[in-house]
Design a protein around this nucleic acid. Structure first.
Lengths: 228, 228
DNA sequence: GCGGATCGTCAGGTCGTCGTCAGGTGGCGC
DNA sequence: GCGCCACCTGACGACGACCTGACGATCCGC
């Protein structure tokens, strides 16, 4: 799944234990010990879900929840020791998507997280977009944008670009690309790949003669340009 | 709030009591005593949320859940007497958005319904209309308006448009559309879909030769146009 | 029973996409 | 500087996904 979640909990022992358990469930966990710290982290770190304890030092948990809801539509699950109906309703009205009570079972929590992400993106997978320079790739929409403008790619071009983008700047050999995009187990030379790289560059490069996004690594393959 | 919800529960006394309690909370309740009856009602009645008991005569509750999830993204809350973690996880994995255990508190249930609808529509109000560009869809009738003018769609055209609009710009594959609108389980290559897309475009597109609302994604399917 | 509305099928046409090719360009070892 | 080889480039034909108009079947209200 690899959902990235922010765990907001002041008790260090609970936080660490829960963090480890959720990591075991396949989550990428970021921790915060207070509401202020959580809001700070969210400014810099992209996150898919927030797990929010209500008993926090300083800023009240419900206020953190309302603040987050004000700022956007980030999924929020409240984790609390209080089981009263009134508390649950208050939490949900404050903008939480779910309210679970301690003691917690990590596997159930993970299932609830998956359900929430599925609801949000239709698939259970977070809708992440990939970037290469000023080129943004949105797999769900089959759309690529360069500097905000929509660029139409064919199926093959799209998969090629995704493979390169997913490698995050590492070189992807010609053999790997042929295998992953075409399923070829090809030995020897083929111009197939070159042609499609060419067509891709024509569409995504600012200047196709000076490639920045799709860079040739002579004798090995190609790599996505590193924007900084 | 006036969310319309379908209550699936075989025990008549529980069903009536819960139905009344939820009506008090401002819900518009439709009842069904079995999975089969529920699926039948959904074919004719537009509903915002399904409350699904797992202990049903005939068709298994989890199967009902999976079937619903297969057909679309209708919000589902499972209501069950079983409290085991394994049961909860199974329910959520079957496609439910939430899992609450008996005994129930109607006010909490209503709060969870509101949270779910808020997540889905951004406002907490049940969705009574969808938009694609300057096309507005009113699910209660087989009617859409384009730039204020009323356009009449047939049942099939309407469901097609709703499926695309609900995906909010994501690509919906031909297989998905065939399955959700016609109930087909992939029928190889068929022109059925094309024809209805064509007919739909004739009615909702400003210029049917330059589709803006219903966009073809070659090799995958269709998507609702992103206005702006 | 008649007529309109709606639906599914079909055949022919269009056009996007793909793979191949032949010739050109430029880096790199000698 | 020379030649080789990896890669670039534009063009072209084929295939198939999708479009389009037409037709017959079915349903339903009158």
């Amino acid at each position: 799944m690899q959902a990235r979640l922010l765990l907001v909990e002041d008790d260090e022992r609970i936080r660490q234990a829960l963090g480890l358990a959720l990591a075991d469930e396949g989550c990428d966990v970021v921790e915060a010990a207070s509401g202020e710290e959580a809001l700070g982290r969210l400014g810099t770190t992209p996150v898919d879900v927030v797990l929010l304890d209500l008993m926090l030092p300083g800023m009240d948990g419900l206020d953190v929840c309302r603040t987050l809801r004000d700022r956007g539509d980030l999924p929020i699950i409240i984790v609390s020791a209080r089981t009263d109906t009134a508390d649950v309703i208050e939490g949900l009205e404050a903008g939480a998507d779910d309210y679970v009570t301690k003691p917690l079972v990590a596997s159930e929590l993970a299932a609830r997280i998956r359900a929430l992400l599925r609801r949000r993106h239709g698939t259970g997978e977070p809708r992440r977009s990939l970037r290469v320079g000023d080129v943004e790739i949105i797999p769900d929409e089959d759309v690529v944008r360069r500097a905000g403008r929509e660029v139409h790619l064919t199926r093959t071009e799209f998969r090629l670009l995704v493979e390169l983008a997913a490698a995050e700047g590492r070189v992807v050999t010609r053999e790997e690309l042929l295998k992953r995009v075409w399923g070829y187990d090809y030995f020897g030379d083929t111009r197939l790949l070159d042609v499609h790289i060419r067509r891709l560059r024509r569409k995504v490069e600012r200047d196709p003669d000076e490639p920045e996004c799709v860079v040739t690594v002579r004798g090995r393959g190609y790599k996505a340009g590193t924007p900084g």
